[in-house]
Computed example of a mutant assay.
Amino acid sequence: MVIRRRPGVLAAPALTATSVLALSGCAADDSASVEDADEGTATPPRPSASSGTGRPEIDLPSDLKLIFEDGRTGDRVKDAVLADNAERMRAVDAAIAGTDRGGEAVGFYNTGKALEAATSWVARFEEADATVTGEVRYFDRKVTLKEKSSALLTFCADESKGFSKDRTTGEIAKTPVTRSPREAAAR
């Protein structure tokens, strides 16, 4: 199974090296691709290479917690799309945090323009000598199957407890929680 994303709708608002993400941002992805998800059992919430799926192992640092709600719909295909969405988000954060320096997981869960956007996103943090810390909660995750091989995925993210952290000093950049990234930028 492969999930493909368009760069304009990757996730919630942008996290810069000096600001927290918006209180709640919602995203949609109408370019998810579902391949052979009808075969076998539903994908587990956290697939890994050690589970025999051939998927890369994704490890996050102990100071970063990602919570994915609404992971089971009862529909095998939708559950697989939700599981891959969670792993895709974990893969990008693992690359930013430095636990996936080679970007193996980012490359597994992204292709084409989505891969370009994900690697560019990771590079921004590297250039700023920053990483991510805290907690991000993904909720209202919904999948609509559009065709046999594509799906629409929408979700919201509460990133009010997620922050950037300077790799050298360990200083955590906390900013006031706002409803919009524009409000945060205007401060």
Rank of each mutant, 00 (worst) to 15 (best):
A12S: 08
D29Y: 11
D63T: 11
S164W: 09
T73H: 12
A95Q: 02
A42H: 01
R182D: 12
L23E: 05
G52Q: 04
V34P: 10
G162Y: 02
A95C: 05
K148F: 09
A185R: 14
V136A: 07
D30R: 07
E116K: 01
R137F: 06
T53H: 12
E147V: 03
R182T: 14
A32C: 09
K65A: 04
G162C: 04
D100Q: 01
E39H: 10
V143E: 05
A28N: 07
T133N: 06
L15V: 12
T169L: 04
A130V: 10
E116D: 11
K113D: 10
T73V: 10
T168H: 12
D100I: 00
R76T: 14
D75V: 02
L21E: 08
P47N: 00
G40P: 06
W121P: 11
P56Y: 00
D84S: 08
K146F: 07
K113W: 15
T41E: 15
A83R: 07
T154C: 01
D93M: 13
G107F: 01
A114R: 05
S33N: 11
G112S: 12
R5N: 10
A94K: 01
P45T: 03
S120Q: 14
A97M: 10
S33Q: 09
E183V: 08
A184L: 11
T43E: 11
T175E: 04
D84M: 13
D30Y: 06
D63A: 15
T178K: 08
S180P: 06
K78N: 12
E126R: 14
S149W: 00
D36W: 14
G134E: 14
A117K: 04
T73M: 08
R182N: 14
Y109W: 11
A95M: 05
T41A: 15
Y109P: 03
R6P: 08
T41W: 14
A14P: 07
Y109L: 07
G74V: 01
E39C: 04
T154S: 09
E135H: 05
A80S: 15
A12C: 03
A151D: 07
G162D: 01
R141P: 07
T53A: 09
K65F: 04
P44F: 01
D166F: 09
R46F: 06
R187Q: 06
R55P: 08
R179K: 07
V20Q: 05
G134W: 12
S48A: 08
A128P: 04
V34E: 05
D75H: 02
G98E: 03
D30I: 06
L66I: 06
V132Y: 00
G102L: 00
D79V: 00
G102W: 00
E35Y: 15
G40T: 13
F108W: 14
A123L: 12
V122D: 10
A91W: 05
S120K: 15
T18Y: 01
G107M: 03
S48W: 01
K113E: 13
A105K: 00
T154W: 06
A97H: 04
A86C: 15
D129H: 11
F125I: 13
L66E: 03
T41D: 15
L10V: 10
R6Q: 06
A117C: 02
E135C: 05
L60W: 02
T119F: 14
D59S: 07
L153G: 13
E126K: 15
P56L: 04
W121V: 05
A185Q: 12
T154H: 01
A86L: 12
R76Y: 06
N85S: 11
A186G: 01
M1E: 04
G25R: 03
L21D: 05
A173C: 10
D79M: 07
E183T: 03
